[in-house]
Design a protein around this nucleic acid. Sequence first.
RNA 1: CGGGGCGUGGCUCAGUUUGGCUAGAGCGCUUGAAUGGGGUUCAAGAGGUCGACAGUUCAAGUCUGUCCGCCCCGACCA
Length: 416
Amino acid sequence: MLWSKTLIPTLKEIPQEAESISHQLLLRAGLARMLMAGAYSYLPLGLRVLENIQKIIIEEMNSCFGAQVLLPALQPLELWQRSGRDKDIGEVMFRFNDRRGRKLCLGPTHEEIITELIKNHISSYKQLPLILYQIQTKFRDEIRPRFGLIRACEFIMKDAYSFDQDEEGLDKNYLAVHQAYLRIFKRCGLDVLSIEADSGVMGGKVSHEFMVSAKDGEDAVLICSACKRAVSFNEDADRFCVKCKASLQKINAIEIGHIFKLGTKYSLALGANFLDAKGNLKPIIMGCYGIGVSRIISAVIEQNHDNDGIVWPKELAPYQVIITALDVTNTDIMRISSGLYEELDALGISVLLDDRDERAGVKFKDADLLGIPVQLIVGKGSLRDGSLELKDRITKEKLIKPKAEILKGLARRIHG
RNA sequence: CGGGGCGUGGCUCAGUUUGGCUAGAGCGCUUGAAUGGGGUUCAAGAGGUCGACAGUUCAAGUCUGUCCGCCCCGACCA
C-alpha cells in the first residue's frame, strides 16, 4: 500500500480527549477515531491490526476444534426473559421496539442465542462435544465508557460456547480453550495472567479471567512477590499470599478474556437437552469463553510502546515493513523504493511505502509512531553504492548494508 | 447518577477574571521560493454558528440561566 493512497491521519500532539497511553497512541498513530463516547471508527491501519488479531484467534480456536459461526446482534427480548437474565442485565442492554411494537435488544453477549440454536440441532450424545465460536460486534450501554477502546459501548468480541454431555467433557474443553487462550495472547505479544474469578451474572461455578498488566488498566490484580501467583483484587483482600505468606503487590490491569464453566444454567432455562447412550434425557453441559478483541488492541499498545510510539508485535503489525523513501522528488530514489516495494510484495510481505512529499524528519517520526517492526530507508546513500538502511523498531538496531544482506536481515526478522 | 475538569478553524491552545472596534497564535492545509537524513525556512493565502438555546446590555467568546457533548474520579461492570 502507498501511504498517499490510504488514510493515516497521524497527530503530532496529544488529543485533548485522550488520557491513557493506549488511547493517545490509538489516535496519534491514526488507528481509530471516536464518533461518540464508546463508539469508534476503525481507520485502515486499525482495521488491519484488528484483522491480524482475529486471524490468530481463528487459527487457535480452530486448532481446538472450534467451528466459527455468526449470530445476529439483533435479538428478541423474549429469549432473555426466558433465561431470566433480562432483569439481571438491566440497563446494560440496549432495548427498543420495532415498527410492530415487538421488543428487541442488541446483544451484549450470546448465551441465550446460541443455546436456542443448539436446542434445535443437538439431540444426541453422538453430536457432542461441540465448540462454536464467533467474532462479532457486541453492544453494552456502559455506565461510563472510557479509555478509548478499553470500555466501549460497541466493541468486537470473540465468544465461544462448548457443549458437552458430562462434567468431564466440560473440564476437557475448558482446559483446551484455556490453553488456546494462552497461545493467542502470547502471539499477540501480551504478558497475560490467568486468574480464578467470580462468574457474576454469567452464572456457573468456575471461571478464569485473563488479565494484562497495564499502568492505565481499570482493574486491579494482586501478585505474590514470591510465587508470582495472581489473585483478583477486592477491597478486603488479604495482604499476604495464602500459599507462601509473602506480601501481595497491587497492579493495574486490563481484562482481555474471561472463561466460564456454565454448567446447565442456560440449557435448563431454554430446554437444550440430549439423549445419552442409555436413552436418558439430559441437559447439555455448557461453557463459554470470551475475548475482548478490540480491547486487545489497547492492551497491546499499553504493553508495547516507547517514547516514540507503538512497537507492534510481529504478528499484529498493520504492515510488516515500511519503506521510507526520502525525497520523493528524486526519481532515482523513487525508482529504487518502488522496485523494493514490488519485490517484497511479490514475496508476500505486507509493505507500506511512504511516498509522501515530506521532510525526512517527519517520515522518521511517523514511522516510529506507527510502530511497524521493520523500516527500510531509501535515501542518497542508496544511490551512491546501492546500499539500503534497515531500522529495527523493536531493538532500535540500524544496519546500512548492501541490498542482499539487508533482505536477509529482513527475512530473519519477519520469519525468524 | 454524585464529584471535578473542559468545550474558541482539522489538531494543540491564548483571550473569559475586569463585557468594548473587523476573534488570535503555533501546527496542519493551499500557492510560490529556498532546502532536503530526525517534526526546515521565508512569503502570500484559505479555513470560525467562539458547543446550543434563551436572557441581561448600547455592546457578549467574555456576565446569568437551561441544555448538549467530551475527559477524569467514584458507584457499577460479563
